[in-house]
């Protein structure tokens, strides 16, 4: 239980910290970009929307800071993230609602695939250290050393432009009707294949190397030698003794580096013009759509936190030591 309470406290505080960061950033930065934007849209904006933006960006300077802070939280609890300036006057929450499923589908799926595949390969590499499998290490190091978006660009150049196997951009073919029909789903899969492949290729290296090192480290634990002394089959020792223990730090590592991985994949969406959160974020940045930028940052942070909670649950299921305190 102690484990869960600690984690719960951590998540609450992290969520609070993210919101607070979001509150202070526009207030601390020089200039008043939102003010100038507001004056540009003067008269076109609904009074309520103006009020909401004032709360979000601290334009009610006559109010004391703590009052602004409380108003801000109050507004967030109602799900009001302001309105987008670029797609005026759509609420930010609506834009996020539209693009989040695409990101969760693409980034979420491919990250999980990369993690599972990378971990399995890491087991093999770690277990067969000193054999020909070692040759894979320089290759994985290379892929972990290049920026994600560059691999994406190369993938487009090779598979999209030169070979013409995959579309260069977009999330589905303009010829199909979005909805729960086969041709739409097929199109989505086809369009997401290349982005997904790039995410897997560029993020898998970290999981491979991490798991390999964990396997190597765990392999010299006594219980692995005991397992060999018992004459258990190779696969038993490898999976039930070495990998089963090495996976625990691997999962904590997964949770902690998720923020980093997600950061990298967001740019990927832009490269492929894939209509997810990352694409929207970069669009918002170049269009000075501050409410949308901030809203997206919050949502990304919360998604990473939720993914962390899931990873914690998996960890707790795998490690009996977190379940019962002796």
């Amino acid at each position: 239980m102690k484990f869960f309470i600690r984690r719960a406290v951590f998540y609450v505080i992290t969520a609070w910290a993210a919101v607070t960061l979001n509150f202070f950033i526009p207030r601390l930065l020089p200039g008043d970009p939102v003010q100038s934007l507001l004056s540009r849209y003067q008269g076109n904006i609904d009074v309520n929307a103006v009020k909401s933006l004032r709360v979000l960006f601290g334009l009610d300077s006559q109010k004391p800071l703590w009052q602004q802070y409380f108003d801000y939280f109050g507004q967030l609890f109602h799900g009001d993230l302001g309105i987008s300036l670029q797609s005026f006057p759509t609420p930010v929450s609506e834009i996020i609602g539209q693009s989040l499923p695409w990101t969760i589908g693409l980034v979420g799926m491919s990250t999980i695939i990369a993690f599972v595949l990378g971990t399995l390969l890491g087991i093999v590499l770690g277990w067969h250290r000193g054999t020909k499998w070692d040759a894979l290490i320089p290759l994985t190091t290379f892929f972990s050393s290049v920026p994600y978006f560059w691999i994406a660009l190369i993938a487009i150049a090779v598979f999209g432009v030169n070979l013409g196997w995959f579309p260069l951009s977009g999330s589905y073919s303009p010829d199909v009707m979005p909805g729960l029909n086969m041709s739409f789903i097929a199109s989505v899969c086809y369009y997401s294949f290349l982005p997904a492949l790039t995410i897997v290729i560029s993020s898998i290296a970290g999981w491979i190397l991490g798991m390999r090192n964990m396997i190597v480290t765990v392999s010299s634990e006594d219980y692995v030698t005991v397992a060999q002394a018992k004459g258990l089959p190779e696969s038993d020792v490898m999976f039930h003794y070495a990998a089963r223990n090495a996976i625990l730090p691997q999962i904590s590592g997964f949770a902690l580096s998720l923020g980093f991985v997600v950061s990298g994949t967001l740019v990927m969406e832009q490269v492929f013009s894939y209509q997810g959160i990352g694409y929207r974020l970069l669009q918002a940045t170049s269009n000075n759509d501050y409410p949308l930028m901030q809203g997206i940052f919050l949502i990304i942070t919360f998604s990473v936190l939720i993914a962390n909670i899931l990873a914690d649950i998996v960890y707790a299921l795998l490690d009996p030591r977190t379940r019962k305190e002796a």
Binding site: D222, Y223, T225, V226, A229, H240, Y241, R244, L248, D319
Partner: peptide
């Protein structure tokens, strides 16, 4: 064989 450290000789997750 009975190993030196009993704590490390047992697989902690089973």
């Amino acid at each position: 064989i009975v190993f030196q450290g009993a704590l490390n000789s047992l697989n902690p997750v089973y």
